[in-house]
Write a protein that binds this DNA or RNA. Structure first.
Lengths: 341, 341
DNA sequence: GTGAAAGCGCTAACAG
DNA sequence: CTGTTAGCGCTTTCAC
């Protein structure tokens, strides 16, 4: 019997003159099957390149050992690294991973969430899109009793587990670093305020200023600045004023990058005239000139913890459920953009 | 009936005192169902947040409208962009996308390939890992009559469709650009020779030299240099010699980056003393100093074409199959690393 | 227009 | 130790 076409249990069973259940059991190393039978079955299965049908198995068993990951886009080192952590833990635990990108569109996110709730996955890890303002499309997971864990960008209003960074603390560390650096006028690029992590970063910025008796100048806070383009524009707004800042704490590396490039173009010296700290520790931060100080988010660890937590919830599904919140400690990476020589 | 738990067709049917088939048909807008019935069914299905089970549907229909993408890693702008192209075309055609990363490991690649052949997908797009030397684990797709299309890193020996770049031409363009630039001694970072695209890039390098009557110096060709680290080391080897090159054509941007950084550290001026052209046009190329000239691979287009081709093969499965090969034209992006002022 | 019944490929009682 | 049976949730003939 040459391998070709798609074979089923019954094909093997027929060939061996046994029943499908016997084949099924043999393949699962069920102890109630004789050694000889098991060997025969496995041998033939191998020769026929038999692959159990995932759908049938999953349908019958009620679980396909698969977790979904719904995130904005994989083309960000942070998310890609989280994914690697998720992959590590999941494969260790025998789970498959189904990756879905919302591309920062809430419509796509909702559509994907729906599509995932059809028996494709046993639980979901999610990080919401920039556009997402409420969790309607995630509520169904709770109702259908499908475990859900948020990572990084969470909807705090929902009663679900989450793994996040202490963004507020990270921001505070960044700004205190600038203050210790001798900076007197620290501007801030805030992200979209409705996303908790960005609100927290801004809060951390305010905390640091207050702690060191800086007066908060609302004009130094530019909102919704997270792209490279926006960063450049924000820099220009600040630079057109008479009272220019001597440092910028950005809620993201991309906007810090944009501002830094435009600052250099405008003839400013970085960090002497203007210092920068970003957030996310994207790899490009260590190859640009000057290199960019940034807050690292422990992406790999976040992925691992999130996957671990989700798998726990999947496997303890019967037990009464209490949402957990894991908060990781940020790490400030100091580079040239804040270094005084 | 409040939405909760997971409902099936039968739950709806029971509630409405009709049969499951009627519900199924109503939901599919089967014309043989009365207008009123259809409305009733849909209304209730909505209220119950009914979601058809993907596994059952797919099992029964024999197809789940899903394509798989098996690639080395999504944390490369090139692959992430291909993915975006694939997503575009697939969602347009009503297909879902299942993403799998081999992380450049042939063992993981083979395991994933196996796992995908279990009814999870209707066809596969693949780009092989660095370690992959033969297509054993892909042969099954042909035998089981599952459409397979390679993109970028293909196994040319297999009789399957592929969408690739004209790497040879791209390399030739890059090297000719250096020659026109006045460079006399052009070194080359070759990739792993068993991967066709890398062999082609090296071939293009040789073509250009021959065309312009340069003598080929084997000592200028360093093999298997594609990481940042390897690039730096390769530069040092070249720089320790008495006859140093005045240009490097690298088969990848990362090794070009590594070499460029180390060249600058060694006190060389780029591009005056040493010019660089990379391959892949990674985004970091436009933010480093100097910016890096590179060959763009039309990643988005490659993704679109690959997905289009695969979906065609899935939907024409009955017809006799002839593998197709789509070759995209490279685009040389000239930046500061090769610019003479 | 609607229902009954079969079956996609698999596993898991229940028998023996 | 192995076979029989039922059924996961859905679609699809075939009847009426």
């Amino acid at each position: 019997m040459p391998p070709s076409k798609k074979y089923t249990l019954h094909d093997i069973a027929r060939e061996l003159n046994v029943s499908a259940s016997t084949v099924s059991r043999a393949l699962q190393n069920n102890p109630r099957i004789s050694e000889g039978m098991r060997r025969n079955v496995k041998e033939l299965a191998d020769k026929m390149e038999y692959q159990p049908d995932f759908r049938a198995m999953s349908l019958r068993k009620g679980s396909g050992k698969t977790i979904g990951v719904l995130l904005p886009q994989v083309d960000r080192h942070f998310f890609a690294t989280v994914l690697r952590g998720v992959d590590e833990v999941s494969s260790e635990a025998g789970y498959n991973v189904l990756i879905c990108q919302s591309y920062e569109s809430v419509a796509k996110e909702a559509a994907l969430a729906r599509s995932l709730m059809t028996g494709k996955i046993d639980g979901l890890l999610a990080s919401i899109s920039i556009e997402t303002r409420n969790g309607e499309h995630f509520e169904q997971f709770r109702r259908k009793n499908l475990p859900l864990v948020f990572f990084d960008r969470a909807l705090e209003s929902m009663q679900v587990s989450q793994v996040i960074l202490d963004d507020r603390k990270g921001a505070m560390m960044a700004v205190e670093h600038l203050i210790e650096n001798g900076r007197k006028k620290i501007a801030h690029f805030a992200g979209p305020g409705h996303i908790q992590i960005y609100a927290n970063r801004t809060q951390g910025y305010l905390d640091a200023l207050k702690k060191h008796d800086f007066t908060v100048d609302e004009r130094l806070i530019l909102k919704g600045v997270i792209t490279r383009q926006a960063g450049c524009e924000a820099f220009r707004i600040l630079n057109d004023r008479v009272d220019k800042p001597d440092a910028i704490f950005s809620s993201g590396d991309y906007s810090a990058l944009g501002a830094m490039i435009c600052a250099k173009e405008a003839g400013l010296r970085v960090p002497q005239d203007l210092a920068f700290v970003g957030f996310a520790n994207e790899p490009f931060g260590s190859i640009i000139n000057p290199t960019l100080s940034s807050v690292d988010q422990h992406a790999l660890e976040m992925g691992r913890q999130a996957a671990t937590l989700l798998i726990q919830e999947i496997e303890n599904k019967t037990k009464s459920f209490i949402p957990r919140k894991i908060v990781l400690d940020p790490l400030l990476i100091v580079r040239q953009s804040t270094q005084i020589h």
